[in-house]
């Protein structure tokens, strides 16, 4: 203990400037992330406005009951995890492919233009995307059914076909995030020493060989970090996306409901702060467990790639 403290104080003396620079971020994290955690006690309380967070009475696990009472808890947990895994896999894979392709473009202006176009969906709000999707898929005036009718085909009622929605959601999620995620990979690829590429090219490596043996191994740490960070959020459904795409369409809920949308719908009429806190608590604890396990596995395989 004392040795640790001593080494810390030595470290502090040695790198005063670095500590000073880290201080604002440290304070910010403390205030914005750690202090609010005390609010988690709300999950176990029957909240009253006049008594406040700490004055309200305890009520055990009462607030958690609605999540599991009617058997929906397991379904929405499963949906949330599966959607996040699917979206994690597709959007990261696409982002890597896009990043490699963009970095292989050598015309400067065309490169910038392509990158901007791919990034653009990131700035479009889900509300607007939801309207696009309704315009594409609705039964009466939707574009897709319009084309099918014109081609003499039987139109499909997408909004009563739950099985198709995981695909639609995954496609739009990738479309929206691929540009943003690829920026990070492009940065990582740019950091690769160009001499290695030149040497490989002189030795006769084709472009695919260079990507396979130089680019991908070089950005592997970035890929793993990105994936780990996403895994840390695996129980958080992207509320905006699901809510704007699916809306109040009950027929699709079994295939599209995630924890966040279920909580929103159940408590909209009856905003109970304790019950919403319980849902967040459940998500946070499970996220914590999962990230610890995954990080432990990564550490076991190669300690360099672990987050901590």
């Amino acid at each position: 203990m004392s040795r640790h403290f001593k080494s810390f104080s030595e470290e502090f003396k040695k790198h005063k400037a670095l500590f000073a620079m880290a201080a604002p971020a440290f304070v910010l994290v403390l205030i914005m992330q750690y202090l609010p955690m005390t609010g988690l006690v709300l999950a176990f309380k029957s909240y009253r406005y006049d008594k406040g967070v700490f004055g309200s009475a305890w009520n055990g696990f009462e607030n958690f009951r609605y999540l599991f009472s009617s058997g929906t808890g397991w379904l929405i947990t499963k949906n949330t995890i599966l959607y996040n895994l699917l979206n994690l896999f597709t959007s990261q894979l696409l982002a890597i492919i896009v990043a490699i392709m963009i970095s292989e473009i050598h015309l400067k202006y065309f490169k910038k233009f392509t990158q901007s176009v791919i990034l653009l969906p990131y700035f479009i709000s889900w509300v607007v995307v939801g309207v696009f999707i309704f315009g594409l898929f609705n039964y009466e005036t939707g574009m897709i059914d319009g084309i099918m009718k014109a081609a003499g085909q039987q139109p499909v009622n997408f909004y009563s076909t739950p099985a198709i929605w995981p695909v639609i959601i995954c496609v739009f999620n990738s479309w929206k995030w691929v540009g943003y995620n690829s920026v990070i990979y492009i940065a990582a690829i740019t950091g690769v020493d160009s001499e290695i590429h030149e040497a490989a090219a002189i030795d006769g490596a084709t472009i695919f060989q260079r990507i396979k043996y130089i680019t991908i191994p070089s950005i592997r740490p970035t890929i793993i970090t990105m994936i780990l960070l996403q895994v840390g959020r695996i129980l958080r459904g992207d509320f905006e996306m699901f809510y704007q795409i699916v809306g109040n369409n009950g027929q699709l809920f079994n295939a599209t409901d995630v924890i966040d949308t279920y909580v929103f719908r159940s408590l909209l009429q009856n905003a109970d702060i304790g019950m919403t806190a319980a849902a967040t608590f459940y998500q946070s604890v499970l996220c914590f467990v999962i990230i610890m396990i995954v990080n432990g596995i990564v550490k076991h395989i190669d300690a360099d790639y672990a987050l901590f």
Binding site: F134, F137, Y139, E140
Partner: peptide, 9 residues
């Protein structure tokens, strides 16, 4: 009414 009314905002 529309077959997709519940998703129409």
């Amino acid at each position: 009414w529309s077959m997709s009314a519940l998703s129409d905002t």
